[in-house]
């Protein structure tokens, strides 16, 4: 038996076994989520400026301090980090960097996603638990 029929039969099932196809699908889904979020973000922030002296803006920020909103923020961080780091991988592929080790590059990028996510999740859940960020004020940043 020649190799050809087997290869033909494997098309389709084989494509979706490849890491790259799942990476592509998640990239597209996270991208669409981010388009929606960016639109909502601009509309919410700018519309709150119709209030006098920042009153409406502060009310919106208080509303977004709700634990459900913060958990949604953490989910958004996952979408942002995945899209950003998979995007870095795509740019590396475009430049021809590491094409022969693309799976290593993909999983390295995902490791960066996990590390950054842990930092954001730690800060968010410290805030939820203590009602204050872990290094709030400690770094001397204007507040």
């Amino acid at each position: 038996m020649s190799k050809k029929p087997r290869e033909t039969a494997n098309v389709g099932a084989g494509l979706w076994k490849a890491t790259g196809m799942w990476a592509w699908l998640l990239f597209r889904i996270s991208g669409l989520i981010l388009v929606f979020y960016l639109g909502a973000h601009i509309i919410v922030i700018s519309t709150s400026q119709f209030g006098v002296g920042g009153g409406t803006f502060d009310n919106v920020m208080n509303f977004l301090d709700h634990p459900v909103a913060i958990v949604l923020d953490v989910a958004l961080v996952v979408a942002v980090l995945y899209h950003a780091l998979n995007g870095v991988r795509i740019i590396l592929m475009d430049l021809g960097v590491g094409i022969h080790r693309h799976k290593v590059i993909f999983w390295s990028a995902m490791a960066v996603v996990v590390v950054c996510f842990v930092i954001f999740a730690y800060v968010a859940f410290s805030y939820l638990a203590n009602d204050v960020g872990p290094w709030n004020g400690a770094l001397g940043v204007a507040s």
Partner: peptide, 25 residues
């Protein structure tokens, strides 16, 4: 976006968490 978003998220959500308000911004 990677560079500016890192700066934006660090200043709004890591360093100023809980302080987001009109005067803080």
């Amino acid at each position: 976006l990677i560079v500016c978003l890192a700066i934006h998220l660090t200043f709004t959500h890591l360093l100023n968490i809980g302080d987001l308000g009109y005067d803080n911004v």
